[in-house]
Write a protein that binds this DNA or RNA. Sequence first.
DNA 1: TAGATTGTTAATCGATTAACAATC
DNA 2: TAGATTGTTAATCGATTAACAATC
Lengths: 212, 212
Amino acid sequence: MEKVNRISMAVIRRLPKYYRYLGELLDKDINRISSQELSNITGFTASQIRQDLNNFGGFGQQGYGYNVEELHKQLGKILGLERTYKAVLVGAGNLGQAVANYKGFEDAGFKLLALFDKNPKLIGLKIRDIEIFDVDHMENFINDNGVEIGIITTPKEQAQGVADKFIKSNIKGIWNFAPTDLKVPENVVVENVHLNESLFILSYMFKEKNRK
Amino acid sequence: MEKVNRISMAVIRRLPKYYRYLGELLDKDINRISSQELSNITGFTASQIRQDLNNFGGFGQQGYGYNVEELHKQLGKILGLERTYKAVLVGAGNLGQAVANYKGFEDAGFKLLALFDKNPKLIGLKIRDIEIFDVDHMENFINDNGVEIGIITTPKEQAQGVADKFIKSNIKGIWNFAPTDLKVPENVVVENVHLNESLFILSYMFKEKNRK
DNA sequence: TAGATTGTTAATCGATTAACAATC
DNA sequence: TAGATTGTTAATCGATTAACAATC
């Protein structure tokens, strides 16, 4: 076992933001940035930015700051964006189709190989060249193609069942849009997109801000 | 100004989960629950659950626990779910249409009145009875109808411009799906759904878990 | 070299957990 | 009444901020 000084989720969740802002700086041909300037842009404190980055290594240089291109590249590596992931999606309704059309997939190295649904009306259709298959064929497909990532955009009632099939087929990462918490073994990671919770929080914040 | 003991975002973000699990208990006709049982279900510690709830009032009863229906109702009130919000959405592409079709809207009391886009091919179409209008008519529509919530599902390049129009039209809450951080005045709340960041985090966790 | 800015340690702040008296 | 479980205070833990020596 390698020395893995466990990095807190609070830090991890800031990394994509750093990565995004660095990408924007790159586009503007800015090639050098200090933690203070990054602080101005991102809203995180300079101290926090330096702490965060130093969890992964000393990417900066005293008296100079950080090289934007280099730091962007390193963060990409840390986030695992240098490789590709084979993915499938289950639940090819509105949300599933929107996710399948999602342009950001490529940026993260995700390659969507197939969609699955149980609705006969959807089976055979294609979303930007990706075919919708009968969900009964899913486990074979995953095994045959070495799929590693599963995306769940089904109603919540089906979500755990789909996750169980994923797990049986040796999928190791799940992007879950169903409004439920999946039970998975310790070696499988789940990232949730809970739109209902997000809306509730918007509702809460709106109410708090707008009270007399 | 009312006494508002500022409640931390960490607490707020757990409330929708409590609300959801309590709803599920209600469906199962369970009408009494202790913080310990809730802990077993939600994964939060009993102590944390009691602390969280007591930010808003003493909903429990010593020796008994919590009344599920009552607590569910109270949490709904706290989250602002007892009232409705008039909303519009801008960017009626794939993601926008999926969001417009999103069933969870009603549960949170959001009433989607109109969609807007600049693509002439989309204008005039309807998504479950909600018409897509030319974005040029948006500000008038918002003012005429007293819209309070705006949803942004445009590409990131347009997002800040749309937000600015929202703000000018007196919208006070924004649900933002564009992969960018909006600049808004202090009295406007923004809740982000950053799918790209979510994917990056999945990628990171996957990589961490699956290294040799 | 002098100035700037990092990397890193120490101090502070806030959030979570533990403990237990209050009380149903 | 005895047992159970909350509400709440105190203790602990972790994350953020401040400070500054190291060094480019």
